[in-house]
Design a protein around this nucleic acid. Sequence first.
RNA 1: GGCCCUAUCGUCUAACGGUUAGGACAUCGGCUUUUCAAGCCGGUAAUCCGGGUUCGAUUCCCGGUAGGGUCACCA
Length: 493
Amino acid sequence: MPQKLHKVKTRFAPSPTGFLHIGSARTALFNYLFAKNAEHLGGEGEMILRIEDTDKERSKKEYEDDIIEGLLWLGIGWTGDPSKKLQKKDIGDEINGDIAYQQPYRQSERTDIYKKYLAKMIADGTAYVSKEEPAEAGQRSEVIRLKNQNKKITFHDEIRGDITFDTTELGDFVIAKDPETPLYHLAVVVDDFEMGITHVIRGEDGISNTPRQILIQEAIGAKSPKYAHIPLILAPDKSKLSKRHGAMSINEYRKFGYEKEAMVNFLALMGWSPQSEEGTEKEIYDMEELIPLFDFKKVQKSAAIFNKDKLDSLQNKWFASFNPEERSVKEKGTEFIPLNEMQEKIHESIKSASGYSLKKANDAFASLVYSGGYTYTDTRDKFMSGEIDYIFREPTLDPQKIAWKETPRDKTIEYIKHIEKILATIEQFYNTPIKTALWDYAEKEGRGNILWPMRYALSGQEKSPDPFTLAEILGKEETLRRLKNAEIVLAPH
RNA sequence: GGCCCUAUCGUCUAACGGUUAGGACAUCGGCUUUUCAAGCCGGUAAUCCGGGUUCGAUUCCCGGUAGGGUCACCA
């Protein structure tokens, strides 16, 4: 059973009739991992990208761009048409520049090849021109059909084992509208053959396409590639993934601030598991770790349900795992890409606040996450919902809520005055120095007495991040102003 | 409906035919704490049903049931 895979060539072959969603991104990832795994084992491995745009009506450049952009983001590299280099300008600047990318193959540019095969099939009698009576508007009165041998076909699936179909029920199906316009099955078979594809790795919905394609392979004398049909990804209600549930473009996740490492990790764990024995409980993997581990034997047979909580959890773990150097790169100004792209999605109440600026939002976001007060996804969600607009807009304080528990107002005023005095002396107005400066005083007077009024004065909320983080985000001037305001609100009239 | 695929906690999954059926996410509880979180610790929770084969089935076989896929001059 064990076989040496000296040469593996896989393909990711999307039709540009929709965005690169979670499911198709995972198919691409598995194709990539399998090819790279062969390389890792000492053989050759490559994945080609082939855009299946034979349907001119439904194919759109917009979708092709989205697919390419998504693959680039995730770091899934491909080879394509060697005569055409992919320019950075083709897909914008925000790409992963360290893999040599080529323009994908496009079926719309290969009609001459299909034409050649079609002619040969007709000459050989394995296909024929058929006179039709159009049943619907737009149908031709003449199409090309395959001469079906009407037999049973068994093929081996690397994940599911042998699968048998009786092709009789398929009839003489149409393989081309005319010699110039091949249909899906013909184009796929010809391309896989011409491109030397060794393994077809695609979604489970491709299973029932396989017998048709094998029939065509036999008709043109092509060797059959190996097949691996991976399980589908379903919505929480077990229905097909829809826009609502995550069928949106993978690029949307980037715009929501997800790290590509988290997405790759998540995708890999949907329908595949690296765990093989007790004790291997590792769940965090990057692309480099995934490659040597990837194996069809560990691919699940049944469909998986998309679980956003798990994605979020992975996102939080990945974000927390970045070392300080990596963090600081992200933290610096416009380098904090997730927020920049998130910007358009930030809640209106925040955007319209007088104190709002992208830089401030950027800094606030970084402070909240790096202070450890909130996870990445918490922070993102709070920006989205407008829950933290007090950062940009001075809050209205309720005098009843400023003092800690039963502590009298006048006493609280004294505390606040003293906090102001201490804060005024701080040069480096950051989280830790602020905490250091205030801590002894807070311990002495009771933490609640000091920290609660401060936090409330700064946020106007009963729930918020800790006061030190807030002070850092607001800056010294604004912090002191808000404390002063709390004093005034509290003062007897 | 025909054909095909699939079936372990709510979800993602682990377990050469012999395990107290393991982990992660979610959930619940506790600790910690300056609120909410986060963090740490702990708990609840699964082999779809029925027959075989076997000394012994989550695991192998058959049937049922359920879910999914597919039945275009789309891909």
